[in-house]
Structures are given as structure tokens and as C-alpha cells.
């Protein structure tokens, strides 16, 4: 089959047709792609390296958007913060941190959730009881609380000089560990349905091990719902990261994420420098909202029962 035919088949598929005819999906997808692109190309698109302290000019501090600075005469698209950091560049770089943390945390949550969900659903019995009780206990705590707890423990264990270097990884670990339950529950439910199907019995007849059956037969069949949850969890993870950073327990000031920028910005909200808060906050809103809408659309499209 030629590439052209394959492309046509894809364009003509029911899934892509549903996408083409949904304005919400198209807009949400475009916004997400725009923000992803901005994050990926941040070093090219930004006018300065916002992390390079030497490049900052304190005289440029508090420059409003699109207006020349009173002292230096420099103009910045979205203005600057208190240290004269260009907000446009800071947001692009902050987006990078936010998305990196979000994707990694979802990846971790997926890995844990899928493995535990498969084990619980396929093996049943006490394995199932144990895993699901742990999950039950965990969901009774707000995930942000769990994240802060893990963050606190990790900081206690790490030597002070390593804290900033590891801050991002601790952030990923804490968000990932607090979001796996949703994956585990869904995968467990789907697994319990799938394992009763006859194709699994056919595999058992061949003497395949339980791990082989889980990995080769059941895993591909649970990925549909997992994809939907992953998208929705991505939005949650980005917001969780922003919240933690806003609270000062997330991304360090040397590597500011959108949350860190919002946290800096809120100090100046009432003194008239509104742009320092507004632009990072709008970016976060656009990102979280589009990812969420995309997730909702995916869920509706992949699950015909809801239509």
C-alpha cells in the first residue's frame, strides 16, 4: 500500500472524520499544538535567555507590555518582571518546564497505574484486594496533599545543595505518584472484562504465562481508555505542578515554570504591574483548558456508549 493510500485511509477514517467535524476539537488541538511548538522552539523564539542572570538588566524591570522602558528605551512584547526579565521569553521557557513535568508525571502515573491495574484485574484475589485498598486510601487524600507530602519527604532526604537540581524530578515523582489511581482503576475494570473473553482462553490453551497474556493480549486492549485518562490527567498534572510551584514547593526560581511565574506575578498584582501575573496565568489557562477539552472529546469519540 502506497503512502498516499495510507494517508487517504487515515484522512477518511471515522476517527479523523469525527475530528474534522468537531470545531471544539480543532480549536483545542490547534491551541495545544501552538503551545507545544512554542515550548519546543523556546530557545529560537525568545529574545533572551531568562535564566541567564548576566543577560538581565535591572533597569528594564517593570516595563509594561509594548511600551518603551523609561530608562533604557527597550520595548518588550509582554513586558518584563521586577528583575527586567522578558515575560515572553520567560513564559516560553516556563511552558517547557510545565509540559516536561506534566508529561513525565503522566508517564510515571501511567506506568504505575497500568501495571498495578493489570495485576489487580488479571490475578484477582488478595493481590487485587491489596492494590485496590491502597488506591482507596490514597484517593481519600487530595492529590495535592500527597504531592506535598512526597515533596517534603524527598527534600528531607536530599542534601541541601542537591535540592534545586533534583527539584524537577521530585516534582515529577510526587505528581506521578498521586495520579496513578485513576489509571489503575480503569485498567483493572477493563482487564476484568477482557480476561473473560475467549481469545484469552485461547492464549491460555497455548500455555502462555500470565505475564505474557497480560502484556501481549490484554495490554493493547486497555490502551483506549488509558489514552483518554492520560489526556485528562495531563491537564490535572500541569495544574498540580503550577499549584505546587505557586506554593513555593515546586520548580525552583532558577528554573521557573508557569506556576513559579504566576507566584512571582501575584506579588505585584496590587501595585499596578498586572502583566506579570496575567500573561503566565492566561497561558496556563489556555493550556489546561485545551488539553482538557481534547480529553473530553477523545472520551466521547472513543466511547460510543456515551454518544
Amino acid at each position: 500500500m502506497s503512502i498516499g493510500q495510507r494517508l487517504y485511509q487515515w484522512w477518511d477514517s471515522d476517527f479523523f472524520y469525527a475530528f474534522r467535524t468537531s470545531p471544539v476539537a480543532i480549536v483545542a488541538f490547534s491551541v495545544v499544538m501552538l503551545l507545544f511548538g512554542g515550548a519546543l522552539l523556546a530557545p529560537l523564539l525568545s529574545v533572551m535567555d531568562p535564566f541567564d542572570m548576566a543577560a538581565l538588566n535591572l533597569m528594564n524591570g517593570f516595563t509594561p507590555p509594548m511600551q518603551p522602558n523609561a530608562f533604557t528605551g527597550d520595548t518588550f512584547l509582554l513586558g518584563t518582571d521586577d528583575q527586567g526579565r522578558d515575560l515572553w521569553s520567560a513564559i516560553l521557557h516556563g511552558l517547557r518546564v510545565s509540559l516536561f513535568v506534566g508529561f513525565s508525571a503522566v508517564g510515571l502515573a501511567m506506568a504505575i497505574g497500568i501495571s498495578l491495574g493489570l495485576l489487580a484485574g488479571y490475578l484477582g484475589g488478595w493481590v487485587d484486594a491489596l492494590i485496590m485498598r491502597v488506591a482507596d486510601v490514597q484517593v481519600t487524600f487530595p492529590s495535592i496533599l500527597i504531592a506535598m507530602l512526597i515533596f517534603g519527604i524527598a527534600r528531607g532526604l536530599l542534601p541541601p545543595e542537591a535540592r534545586n537540581d533534583f527539584a524537577i524530578w521530585v516534582l515529577i515523582l510526587s505528581i506521578g505518584l498521586s495520579e496513578w489511581v485513576q489509571f489503575a482503576r480503569t485498567v483493572r475494570g477493563t482487564t476484568m472484562v477482557e480476561k473473560e473473553k475467549e481469545y484469552v482462553q485461547a492464549a491460555q490453551l497455548l500455555g502462555l504465562s500470565r505475564l505474557q497474556i497480560m502484556r501481549r493480549h490484554i495490554l493493547p486492549n486497555v490502551m483506549g481508555p488509558v489514552l483518554v485518562i492520560a489526556t485528562i490527567t495531563l491537564a490535572l498534572a500541569i495544574i498540580a505542578e503550577a499549584t505546587l510551584s505557586f506554593l513555593g514547593v515546586g520548580a525552583p526560581p532558577t528554573q521557573p515554570s508557569l506556576g513559579t511565574l504566576i507566584s512571582i506575578g501575584q506579588d505585584f498584582l496590587f501595585s499596578g504591574e498586572w502583566w506579570i501575573l496575567l500573561f503566565p496565568a492566561l497561558t496556563l489557562l489556555a493550556l489546561a483548558l485545551s488539553v482538557n477539552l481534547l480529553g473530553d472529546w477523545l472520551r466521547d469519540t472513543l466511547n460510543p456508549r456515551l454518544q
Binding site: K197, E198, Y199, Q201, A202, H217, P220, N221
Partner: peptide
């Protein structure tokens, strides 16, 4: 098996 639908991994 009985079910032509459930007996093949989709």
C-alpha cells in the same frame, strides 16, 4: 469457541 467476536483479539 462460541463467540466469533470475543474469540479473536481485536
Amino acid at each position: 469457541f462460541q463467540s466469533p467476536y470475543a474469540s479473536l483479539n481485536p
